[in-house]
Each structure stands twice: as structure tokens, then as C-alpha cells.
């Protein structure tokens, strides 16, 4: 916090954060847990964002039951928000029995929720999204990704293609659903970035972040993973052969399937309540 007590809000650039430093050494703040405790960028809904990150962290097993969180002041400094915002988020998490606060010399906030409980909470959050919101993000991703593959096939260099083919080859059902989902999203983003367009890439990054709850929860069957992995290998070949239009058709079909799958997953989650 600065002298006026107003928290510094770091500027969000893509997936990284740029934070002003006032220390003469230009030293970044102490960071403990990677993205979960990386600075919160948006001005709106900062409390929600902190709650979401901690719940996602528990659901992924990065934050474990019994683990102690940094102090309110430490968290505020790391996240680039006011202590009051952190206090609000911790209060919400306490209310939902995700953590407990112990007083005294060995006091602090400790994680109490199991990964399964955190997943249940993510499901609850997911049901608050409307199908229209999911479809709309999906529509944007279709537009961005189909345009991007055409450009990728035109502008990609040979070394990019070698890398792309290797990354596609690494995508396999052996990864398990969660890791597969992450790897697929990363590969997708890598392909969009081959367009050499920072704006298209940023649009895909933003759309993926908005979908992060759905993507974190969705479970893929083994056959589905194999099929998608095989598809991406074909796509990597199409792009490497500079067949932009064929790559575009592939992407259009793939995204239509993915969006339908996400909508159906949302529909079932809402129905199950």
C-alpha cells in the first residue's frame, strides 16, 4: 500500500502482471504460491477474484488442507489490493468452511476444505453463468481461432511448425483429464499466437480466462481425449503445410464441437443442481 492507503493495482498484460515497484532495488514483492497469489488485476470484483483463485487452488490440489495462508498484510501486498479486500475474501471463505482462522501465537488462516468440496463450490459458481454467456464467449473464440489459423499457416516459420508438431504430439489421453484440458488450451493459445497478432492472442487469452471454471471442472472421456489429440496433430500438419483454408475448416468444426460440449456440461451441471 502507498502512503494514502490506496492499494496499487498492477496493470494486467496478457497472462502476466506488471507491477510498479517503489523499492530502490526494483525488487518485486515476495511471492509464495504462484498464480494463486499473483496480483489481482481487475478493479471490479477483486474480492470475488481472490475467493475464486483460492477455491481453484484447492480444487487443483495446489493448496492443501491444513496449509497456512500468508497473513492478511502479506496477501494484500502480494495481490496488490487493500487489506480490507483480503479480509472480506477471507471472511467469505470462512463462512463457506473453506478455511478457519485460529487465534494466538500459532494463529492464522488454515485451509480446511478438501479438493472435492472446492470442486462442489466451483460447480455452484458455474451454475450462476447463463448459457448465453457461455455461448457468447464460444462465438468469440470461433471468430478469433478461425482467423488466427489462416494467419498462422501464412506467417508461421519452419521452426514454429517443428515446435507446434512436437507440442501436438505431446497431447495424449495418458495425461489425465485435468492435465489434458490445460495442455489443450495451451496448445490452442500457441496456435493463435502463431498468427503474429497480439490482439487476436489477447482476445483468446481473455476468453479462456473467462471460461476457466468450466474448463477446470469438465471431465473428458479417454476416447474423447484421443480423438481431440489426433485432431490437433492433423491441424498441426495442415498449418505446417500452409493449408490455411483446410486449417480454418478444421478449427471451425472443432470449436463448434467444443462449444456444444461446454454448453451441455453447463446444462447438466445446472440440472443436477
Amino acid at each position: 500500500m502507498n502512503a494514502t492507503g490506496v492499494a496499487r493495482v498492477p496493470e494486467r498484460r496478457g497472462l502476466a502482471m506488471v507491477e510498479a515497484v517503489d523499492d530502490a532495488a526494483g525488487r518485486p514483492g515476495r511471492r509464495l504460491g504462484g498464480a494463486i497469489f499473483a496480483p489481482v488485476g481487475e478493479v471490479e470484483g477483486r474480492t470475488d477474484e481472490i475467493v475464486k483463485r483460492i477455491i481453484q487452488g484447492i480444487s487443483l490440489g495446489v493448496l492443501k488442507p491444513g496449509e497456512q495462508l500468508p497473513t492478511e498484510n502479506e496477501l494484500a501486498a502480494q495481490l496488490g489490493v487493500a487489506t480490507l479486500t483480503v479480509r472480506g475474501a477471507l471472511a467469505q471463505l470462512r463462512e463457506r468452511n473453506i478455511l478457519e482462522t485460529r487465534r494466538g501465537r500459532v494463529g492464522g488462516s488454515f485451509i480446511t476444505a478438501e479438493p472435492a468440496a472446492a470442486r462442489a463450490m466451483l460447480r455452484e459458481r458455474l451454475t450462476r453463468l447463463s448459457p448465453l454467456e457461455i455461448r457468447d464467449i464460444g462465438d468469440l473464440r470461433v471468430a478469433v481461432s478461425t482467423a488466427a489459423v489462416v494467419l498462422a499457416a501464412r506467417r508461421g516459420a519452419i521452426s514454429d511448425f517443428d515446435h507446434l508438431r512436437a507440442a501436438a504430439a505431446g497431447l495424449g489421453s495418458g495425461l489425465g483429464s485435468e492435465a489434458f484440458s490445460l495442455a489443450e488450451q495451451r496448445l490452442h493459445l500457441e496456435i493463435v499466437a502463431l498468427s503474429q497478432s497480439p490482439r487476436l492472442t489477447r482476445a483468446e487469452v481473455d476468453a479462456q480466462s473467462e471460461m476457466s471454471d468450466v474448463l477446470a471442472l469438465r471431465r473428458l472421456a479417454e476416447e474423447e481425449m484421443s480423438r481431440v489429440a489426433k485432431g490437433f496433430r492433423e491441424l498441426a500438419d495442415l498449418i505446417s503445410e500452409r493449408r490455411g483454408l483446410a486449417a480454418r475448416s478444421w478449427m471451425e468444426e472443432h470449436m463448434a464441437e467444443e462449444n456444444a460440449g461446454l454448453l451441455e456440461f453447463h446444462r447438466l451441471t445446472v440440472r443436477e443442481g
Partner: peptide
């Protein structure tokens, strides 16, 4: 300072 995401479980 540029802070990057160092959490292997995260998309970024």
C-alpha cells in the same frame, strides 16, 4: 517489474 505466472496448474 514483470510478474509471470509460476503455478504449473494454471492456464497461464
Amino acid at each position: 517489474v514483470l510478474l509471470v505466472d509460476v503455478d504449473p496448474g494454471s492456464m497461464g
